[in-house]
Design a protein around this nucleic acid. Structure first.
Lengths: 251, 251
DNA sequence: GCGCTCAACTTGTTTAAACATGTTTGATGG
DNA sequence: CCATCAAACATGTTTAAACAAGTTGAGCGC
């Protein structure tokens, strides 16, 4: 499926690392060897290696080689975010995913919504609220705002299946960039109504702004997660020691 | 300071976007124009643009141009993680940072520590616990494990100032990759003892494994944050629709 | 006016080559 | 034996060029 060479190489190397054909702390074949293996130019293999480095799979050592730093994680928890979607997580963990739409209305952005989301006043929006179940347990309370002009023909039924599937495969719009913020907040009455919070009185909250291939923000979402299963993973690669500071992208 | 061309260009463009010389939703000068502006090859400007795209500053539109999607955020909250360190956040928000070392011991990894952190049993470690204050308020309870062989001569005094400054500027070790996991956990007695939790009974917890330029993991840290100020920011760029799935890197 | 094509843009992919710089190792010379 | 130096090899940066593919608008024919 991947049409480009660099992505074919990227996927192949990634798969070989995940299957531990290349082991943790081992060096990959040198760039010149990879050039022979994949019959391509050095730039192309370097691009694939750079992508793996961003994923936290490898790390280049100047003059030495490219070291594998991927460790097969003991997937005890149900991890989400950073790597895959709710649906994919469910599939990987062999659990049953279900979505209940509790609100589907058409609204128009006003000053208050603008300040919170960035949708300029007067913008036509869909307001969707959904509860996500995993193996019958409600875990996420999703609050979405979608740009109506970007997603024509959205229905309650589509929201219950997969909005992203509709966006990508039916409308043919491509999703490109997503800016996310994670915080911890107290549970609201709505949270308690929709999620089985037991004695939890707080939630992990992920808000995100998503842009399509035209550079237009078409989605603003606040996902409210039950804290006992929430797990977000991230890999940061340091670029450069900042001017006078100590560390960047590294707490 | 930046020796490489692509980084000079990256920084210059980034600064121009932040200062809104290039506005939100505007197109940057075309790649060929940037080649003239910066007197370099197209590959080099493309590299700088690629870095800006990863930062969520711009987005390339095939056939059209490169659109600015950076929005100057209303920095009301004290944001950490993903972008800068505790010390830098404090400096930017013009607040006073202070660190109290509550434990500094030398230990050796065992089976239990190995399973949790990845340090093989028998590895000599420093065990450091610190409380981070901002304007006199304790906000973070840091639990660090450092590889003793990688950081010789670490002392309690250094821990109180800045370990990263010591690592980078005194020892000369470079920090490269950091893998992080975010969860939400109930407060422990230790949390309550060190942080002024008021009626909070939960915390935002960030655990991270950090690798140096040799590809060696030299740090395992668990940072326990008071929830009312914790804010983590992240930008995800979608690479490709995964094989049979719906979305990747996008919740 | 309308639609069509084409030329002139744009970004995306790939190759080839040169040089810089860091690491390792083996040969050489003391 | 050991220190030194150079060759071989690793990754890092930059340039140049070619071609692919998406977008736009001018101009042409009808």
């Amino acid at each position: 499926m991947p049409k480009s060479k660099f992505e074919t190489i990227y996927r192949d190397l990634k798969q070989k690392i995940e299957s531990q054909e290349y082991l943790y702390q081992e060096l990959l074949p040198s760039e010149n060897n990879l050039v022979s293996i994949y019959d391509c130019s050095r730039n192309t293999v370097r691009r694939a290696i750079g992508m793996l480095a961003e994923d936290g799979y490898v790390q280049s050592l100047h003059g030495k080689g490219v070291r594998v730093i991927y460790q097969p994680v003991a997937q005890t928890n149900f991890t989400i975010g950073g790597i895959e979607s709710f649906k994919e997580s469910a599939a990987r963990n062999r659990k049953h995913a279900f979505t209940r739409v509790v609100n589907f209305t058409e609204i128009t952005s006003d000053e208050r919504i603008f300040r919170k989301t960035g949708f300029v006043p007067g913008t036509p929006l869909y307001y969707v609220q959904r509860v996500r179940y995993l193996n019958g347990t409600p875990l996420i309370f999703d609050n979405n705002l979608f740009l109506r002009t970007a997603i024509p023909g959205l229905t309650r039924e589509i929201c219950q299946k997969s909005i992203y599937d509709y966006i990508e495969n039916k409308i043919g719009m491509q999703i490109v960039t997503s800016k996310r913020t994670m915080t911890v907040e107290r549970a609201t009455p709505a949270d308690e109504a929709y999620l089985e919070l037991k004695d939890f009185d707080f939630l992990a909250v992920v808000t995100s702004q998503t842009f399509n291939a035209d550079g237009v923000m078409f989605e603003y979402t606040q996902s409210r997660h039950r804290p006992d299963y929430f797990c977000f993973q991230d890999t940061a690669v340091r670029r450069k020691p900042p001017a006078g500071g100590t560390s960047q992208k590294l707490a």
